[in-house]
Design a protein around this nucleic acid. Sequence first.
DNA 1: ACGCGGTTTAAAT
DNA 2: TAAACCGCGT
Length: 576
Amino acid sequence: MGIKDLLRFMKPYILPIHIQKYARTRVGIDAYSWLHKGAYSCSMELCLDTDGKKKLRYIDYFMHRISLLQHYEIIPVVVLDGGHMPCKAATGDERQRQRKANFDAAMEKLKEGNVGAAVEFFQRAVSVTSSMAHQLIQVLKSENVEFIVAPYEADAQLAYLSSLELEQGGIAAVITEDSDLLAYGCKAVIFKMDRYGKGEELILDNVFQAVDQKPSFQNFDQELFTAMCVLAGCDFLPSVPGVGISRAHGFISKYQSVERVLSVLKSKKGKLVPEDYSSSLMEAVSVFQYARVYDFHGKKLKHLKPLSQNLMDLPVEQLEFLGPDLSPSVAAAIAEGKVDPITMEAFNRFSVSSRQLKTPVQSFKEQEKRSSFLLLPLSESEERINLKRSADEAIIGPESVLEEPKYSKQDLDLHKLVLQQPNKDHMIIPTSNPSLAPDNNPFKIRKTDEINMEEYGLQELKVSFETNGEAVDVTSSLNSNEPDCSESQKEGTIDLSKLDDSLIKQDSEKNREKESSVDSEDVVEIQGHVNITTKRVRGAKPRAESFKVKTSFRSSEDKKVKINKKSSILDFFHRL
DNA sequence: ACGCGGTTTAAAT
DNA sequence: TAAACCGCGT
């Protein structure tokens, strides 16, 4: 995806490099691309959700590349995708079908006994799930690899980090496959990095400063460049028919302003230009400039770039297209990988701890230890990482107790459920059937949509863990205040009532009862750390020792409807 | 020249 | 899932 044909267009500015160039600096990683590539190595296992560690090969793939970077004394900073942007919903639907079709085809081949053919189809059916992302996070934590879950687009977060000085937690370059990074204004981007660390790099400043290079960007600034990208067609806004990257570049370099290009565009191909194309374009450009990102030091959301006066004058609701604001506690919980950024369910830390970290990681570590000239700088940087992470571990502190009122409403609207991670590590026990992991919530709608695993047997999930005695029932859904529950909606219930043993149990029986009626709000304290606003389901008994979490599994159609309802300000996809 | 749709191929081990 | 490649239409 990304910007259509941008990389091909920018080819003259893209040079082969080796990541060694970034030794002793911090480099950002767009986790999605590695997760996706890694998923190929175990596509069947992921699709079928089989037991065993072969399924975790994508983790090995990822960590091998992390080790590679560390081997070259690079400090990797992994950035994962968070919630979906309000606008870019439209792409998901048809691919969903394709994926489902491929999955079914694979199952057919499997029944015929043709495993090889089945794998081919499985590879076309895999997608990156939030469960995979979460498992990765657990490993990153245990390996002391710095990571951050972006509130929305990882690209925006990476661009933000790239704008910071290294000493302030910034990064010197980004490894990704996504050309969006350039539209976001990322200084240095490395594409197509292979397993040896070779890749293709584009330095944005070189583009603007180049004198005799073919596509000339002499009079471009970052804003014009971004506008060119949007004109060429991006995930937020399809291009005007007949306009691609080349003409977009032509328009921008000729007219030197977005407004002029727009008026020329309208007079030139009037009918082809949608009514609200101008406003959509301006807003899309704004997203690339001012998207909401997580501010690591302030532990709250902020904008990629300080808002222009123009945007600051707008009422806050009008800024939702940059990504809805989140309260600091929610933003922090997301960033630290404690809650699923889409469903806002607490991650349950499924059993990655049992994973035996093996060969590649260890072998690199050994190499480092044995290599005398590497020893000093490495231990130094490792120590730095350790310090950093332990500082980050500091939680969502008491300041969140006095949450600003404006947020509590939002916490309701978006139905944020912030749960402290269960404090008993041992409560996470590998289940005999890992398919219980709620892995049908993809981190990203744009490039991936999950197969609805519940169609293949997942019905209910029971989990037990200890709370501090408070009992709440929480319905967790994207939008609890939207009543529609279509037929395709199913419910999984996480029943936390069994306090004595902390085993995750499967319960195969269906649970169709709906307890959606909600009549009161409460601030609930969980483990004395996080104060959250949530809704108490009628009938929940205070002090009862049960803790129920209902999750809603929806078809993507449902999601899309909801998202469309939400994006009242911006409907980029009215034409689709 | 450019856009664009359709087809092919690599990716992972 | 792209990206790369190709041929057609403007």
